[in-house]
């Protein structure tokens, strides 16, 4: 379109507030955080420059190394989570009775908020909860555990909740990916006498390789940002603290804003790497 005076007015008028919002609530804070991460800022007063001290603390103090290690559990459970979601998407992708019912029921967990999910799984993992009751009923009473008090078991236990909570999201993405495969491909395979298993192996899996990759990276960037479940269920106790819980604790309870800023930057860098790889592969998939 031609540039006229009225076009200039509308460009400025329509962009001004959203761009200011973007700068004030995203870019300026992250830049401030970079600066604050090199200081001992306590929330009030003037920040004092302390160089790399915050970062050094983060990578040497076992207390904080553990916080990042906890994220590994959340990455690990992403594997069964993605397999489950993929198998479901393959099964649901077709025409059969009850298709909409299954689709509807399967994404229910994804729609529930963190407090609801936490309550459900407190009941599940409690000493007299669902899991122990089931174990006892099927004669495996010997395996009964204090799931949330046992320091070795608590992290894998609450991390596994992610499988239940988020497989629905992966399922929707895989399903969307499978829907974009042209039906001629399946028809041609049918003419050639392919079996269902061959169809899955040679058409479905290669076609959604990119979607799979995006899901893996989403899981990685999600794992590093885990907050709600360990915070609501455990308040970070019994060694379940995650980086985001630690940020909140340091910044708003202990007034160690500078340290929290350094932690934020570490999370930020990990997310940048994960999301960066993701958009790189996303672009390559489009070409």
């Amino acid at each position: 379109m031609k540039k006229t005076k009225s076009s200039k007015i509308i460009i400025v008028a329509f962009l001004l507030l959203p761009v200011i919002h973007l700068l004030v609530f995203s870019y300026i804070p992250i830049l401030c955080n970079v600066y604050l991460s090199f200081t001992d800022f306590k929330g009030t007063g003037t920040p004092k420059w302390i160089g790399l001290k915050n970062y050094k603390r983060l990578v040497t103090d076992p207390q904080y190394i553990m916080v990042f290690k906890n994220c590994l559990w959340y990455m690990l459970v992403a594997i069964p989570q993605l397999i489950l979601a993929f198998v479901l998407a393959v099964f649901v992708n077709g025409k059969f009775r009850g298709l909409n019912f299954f689709k509807g029921v399967l994404i229910i967990p994804y729609l529930l908020n963190g407090v609801i999910v936490s309550t459900i799984f407190i009941i599940f993992f409690n000493n007299s909860g669902t899991l122990n009751l089931i174990l006892e009923t099927i004669g495996l009473g010997a395996l009964k555990q204090q799931w949330l008090q046992n320091l070795k078991l608590v992290n894998p236990a609450i991390a596994s909740i992610s499988i239940w909570r988020y497989y629905g999201m992966n399922f929707i993405m895989f399903f969307g990916g499978l829907q974009t495969i042209p039906s001629e491909l399946f028809e041609a395979a049918a003419v050639d006498g392919a079996t269902k298993w061959q169809e899955i192996k040679y058409i479905s899996i290669p076609a959604i390789r990119n979607v799979l990759f995006i899901n893996i990276l989403l899981s990685i960037s999600g794992s590093i940002q885990v907050f709600e479940i360990p915070y609501i269920m455990m308040n970070g106790s019994n060694g379940t603290t995650t980086p985001v819980i630690q940020i909140q604790q340091s910044a708003f309870a202990d007034n160690r804003v500078g340290f929290a800023a350094a932690l934020s930057i570490m999370v930020f860098v990990i997310v940048v790497i994960a999301v960066g790889l993701q958009s790189f592969f996303n672009k390559r998939g489009e070409d």
């Binding site: 540039k3 973007l22 700068l23 870019y27 992250i30 955080n33 910044a251 929290a260 997310v271």
Partner: peptide, 28 residues
């Protein structure tokens, strides 16, 4: 519209993908 700075603004919006909400709240 085509205008000066369009690319920059588009990039600014796109790059917010890299800035999780949880990493900015200390300052916000």
């Amino acid at each position: 519209f085509e205008f000066f700075g369009k690319k920059i603004i588009m990039t600014l919006f796109t790059l917010t993908m890299f800035i999780p909400v949880v990493t900015t709240q200390t300052v916000v």
